[in-house]
Amino acid sequence: MTARKMGRGALVVAMFSLLAACSSLGGRGAPASAPVVRDPAPIVSGTMRPYQVRGRWYRPEEQPNYDEVGMASWYGSAHNGRPTATGERFDMNALTAAHKTLPLPGLVEVTNLDNGQRVVVRINDRGPFAEGRIIDLSREAADELGLLAKGVGRVRVRYLGRAPRLGGGAVLTASTTSSRPPAPTDAAGAEAGPFWVQAGAFSDADQARRIADSLSGWVRANGADAQFRVVVGPWDDANAAESARQAVVARGYVDALLISGS
């Protein structure tokens, strides 16, 4: 277990001393129950007002029965340390996430529908604003769910209610033999690349080449679906690739994906 994992585990245990939980918090290999929050943090002033992003209006509200299936993405070092919508600092190594309309701060249970992994995360930010995404996870939450290498994944998000004044994240489902797809590793045991950023897939080859040139990227032709995929990279480190994905998103390619493989 790394020092970062040990430190996070100790912090979560300390936070849960403030709560009455259904059962003790477990790490990998020790399933836990979602926390029962006795002293919830107040909703942060201003975060429940309607707001507009790229011409689209979002209207936050209490949604006690919120239970939705959709695509999740994640964000990491490019945003680490920056203020979130609640005023808290984004910590990519904590179990947190961004949601467009749920109360802040709140707790949600996120299940990776491909492998059954489940976590509880603290919602403390707004987003994601890419079409078809329902939640944006911290790097740590994506790691626990097995979504780092893929960049996106199909998940179920269930609202649990208001968050405690501190923390609230927990790993609910873990196995001593991880159900995550095995990732290639280097000699040090870290996930090996290469990692690429896919800006988009296009049916027009000339359009794909123009976009690739503007991003200093490449065009990959896929005869199976007659699509020309614009990719940027590669990077050996997933964090560096995620920073590049955020930069591509900022250029207007909001559906940019983090992919792995040669």
Rank of each mutant, 00 (worst) to 15 (best):
I135C: 07
A141K: 06
E61D: 13
S216I: 08
T96P: 13
D143H: 14
D125G: 07
D225K: 12
D125S: 05
S216C: 04
L104G: 08
A30M: 03
S138C: 07
Y51L: 01
G189F: 02
P64N: 14
E140V: 09
N239C: 07
W235A: 11
Q117C: 08
A34G: 04
Q246A: 09
L137N: 13
N65R: 13
V171S: 01
F90D: 15
A183N: 04
A97D: 03
A174S: 06
D136W: 14
T101W: 09
A224F: 13
M6S: 08
A130W: 10
T173M: 03
W74Y: 15
G9T: 00
G87A: 10
G87C: 09
T111Q: 11
G116Y: 08
A142V: 03
R210Q: 15
S260M: 02
R210E: 14
A85P: 14
G261V: 05
R139H: 15
A190I: 00
A183L: 13
F90G: 14
T84K: 06
V232G: 03
T176P: 00
Y51P: 00
G193N: 10
R56F: 07
L107C: 08
T47F: 01
T173F: 06
G27A: 14
D206H: 10
V13L: 10
T176Q: 08
W218S: 06
E131F: 09
A224P: 14
G151F: 02
E109L: 11
P31G: 05
V36I: 03
K150E: 13
N239Y: 14
V110E: 10
R165Q: 11
S216W: 04
E140W: 13
V110T: 02
A30W: 09
A244T: 01
G167E: 13
G168E: 11
D255H: 00
L102D: 12
V37S: 02
S178H: 06
T185P: 08
D125Q: 09
V171M: 08
K5V: 00
F228N: 13
L102T: 12
R118A: 05
T84S: 01
A188E: 12
Y159N: 07
R82C: 08
C22N: 14
L95T: 13
R28N: 05
N112R: 07
M6H: 02
A170C: 03
R38H: 11
R56L: 04
A241C: 07
S73H: 14
E191P: 08
L104Y: 09
E61W: 02
N112Y: 10
S216R: 11
W218G: 00
R49V: 01
V120M: 06
Q117L: 10
A141Q: 12
T101H: 11
A221E: 15
G200I: 03
D39Q: 04
G223F: 11
G217N: 03
A78Q: 15
F195I: 03
M71R: 12
W57K: 01
W57H: 04
S175Q: 06
L104P: 06
A201R: 02
V155Q: 05
V12L: 03
L19C: 04
Q63I: 07
T173V: 10
R209W: 15
G70A: 11
R229T: 09
L11D: 13
P40L: 03
G26F: 12
N93S: 13
G26H: 12
M92I: 14
V110A: 05
M71N: 04
W218D: 13
N239Q: 15
R49W: 04
R122G: 05
C22T: 09
V219E: 12
S214E: 14
A212Y: 12
A183R: 07
